[in-house]
Amino acid sequence: MTDTVIEFRDVNKWFGNIHVLRDINLAVEMGEVVVVCGPSGSGKSTLIRCVNALEPIQGGELVVLGESLTKPGVNLPALRTRVGMVFQSFNLFPHMTVLENIMLAPVKVRGLSAAEASRVARALLERVRIPDKAENYPANLSGGQQQRVAIARALAMQPKIMLFDEPTSALDPEMINEVLDVMTDLARDGMTMMVVTHEMGFARRVAHRIVFMDAGQVVEEAPPDLFFAAAKSDRAREFLSKILTH
């Protein structure tokens, strides 16, 4: 038997009058890597932002790590320590060094001592392959390095789930792989991941499942080999023909 760690049940979301998520039903198992793709504006970001409650939902139910996010009184900060998130725009704290960025939540939320948190942070910097950048400020790092620090910062709380919203879209091409490599390591270590990305090579190699969205709906889900070889829906085939030909 597998463990479901994220479950969307008929989830609906509106921004004002815009219906952004329509009757989403989706389950993610422990250790699974799910890549979410689809055209711009289809609701991919919104979908994964709901998982750590950066966006509230207006209909249906969303259960994450056994907690229903729609239940009143749910402790969001506690939930978010168990769900890491990596953004397209890195969002490191510019007034703190790399080490301080990673140590912040372990010290302030977990109550770790500075020494212990610093040990954890340095180990994570090893893991994302930039051990020598600990004392730098974010502005003095390349985009690829910043994004790897952002991954380390999210991992510092030992989350059970990692969410990635187009983590390589803001990067120069030569830096994309260094970030994808770190994400691949993470997937191999068994992390549960939901990844919004246009990197179809990564999706093919690492994902267990592709979720294709269009107009706020999950149109199709399939294992990568099946999805790329023989997408069932016209919309997915059209989307693939557009992004795979250049």
Binding site: N52, L54, L76, P77, A78, R80, T81, G84, M85, F87, N91, L92, F93, L104, A105, K108, V109, A150, R153, A154, A156, M157
Partner: peptide
Amino acid sequence: EAAVAIGLT
């Protein structure tokens, strides 16, 4: 968002 996403209130 990045600040609350790591568990800060």
